[in-house]
Design a protein around this nucleic acid. Structure first.
Lengths: 100, 100
DNA sequence: AATTCAGTTCGTAAAATTACGAACAATTAT
DNA sequence: ATAATTGTTCGTAATTTTACGAACTGAATT
């Protein structure tokens, strides 16, 4: 009667976290932009996207929290770039998930 | 003053939906299982996973809604399988996103 | 010093997600 | 017919997500 519940692996949790942060169209859009041009300003995004700047800021925060992007202060603006290391990790995890 | 907001593409929305449904460890676990053995019963999952069967059923419903799995009634059980067509679509979309 | 600009944080609200147990439905076994 | 098995649906609750406008911060300009 040993309740032998198999648990979910750490890499599955990590994968789910990356997938989750990519689970919103605005965040997909931002990442696709940064893949093309490596960096951008929040204002550029605000012009292109039909959302309030505070909402955009929240999405950027989510991406930062997940580690996928990083911001560099270039007064009076903030330059956002992909965090290559983390992006590669996400790529590896998701790629492996998809292809094996 | 033409409010020329660029909108998010349909494929970005689709990608986000697939990513979203993969954004939970339990659902990642289920998909990984189905990739290995193509089919399984809900009861098998219930034994392995530390969640209520009703919660599991909800996750299966999410995966069905996204099209990634399909259920076949094999009384008194239900056999779940990957929906190959949809899985390939998700693979293609996500793979392209990751690798270009 | 006051204004402007870019962007974040705060306060708030609505909706979606996650989770559980209880009740239910359908089939099988007794 | 009754009971057991498998899994879903229902009702509910707590948490998270998404979104907005207003207020704020820090730097640059006037």
């Amino acid at each position: 009667m040993s309740e032998n519940k198999q648990h979910i692996s750490e890499s599955q949790k990590k994968l789910a976290l990356y997938a989750k942060v990519l689970g919103h169209p605005v965040r997909v859009y931002i990442i696709e932009l940064l893949k093309r041009q490596t960096c951008c300003y929040s204002g550029d995004l605000a012009q292109e996207l039909p959302i309030a700047k505070s909402t955009l800021s929240q999405h950027l925060k989510e991406l930062k929290k997940a580690g996928l992007i990083q911001g560099e202060i270039k007064p009076p603006r903030i330059k956002y770039c992909l965090n290559i290391e983390k992006w590669e990790e996400a790529r590896a995890l998701l790629g492996d998930f998809l292809n094996t």
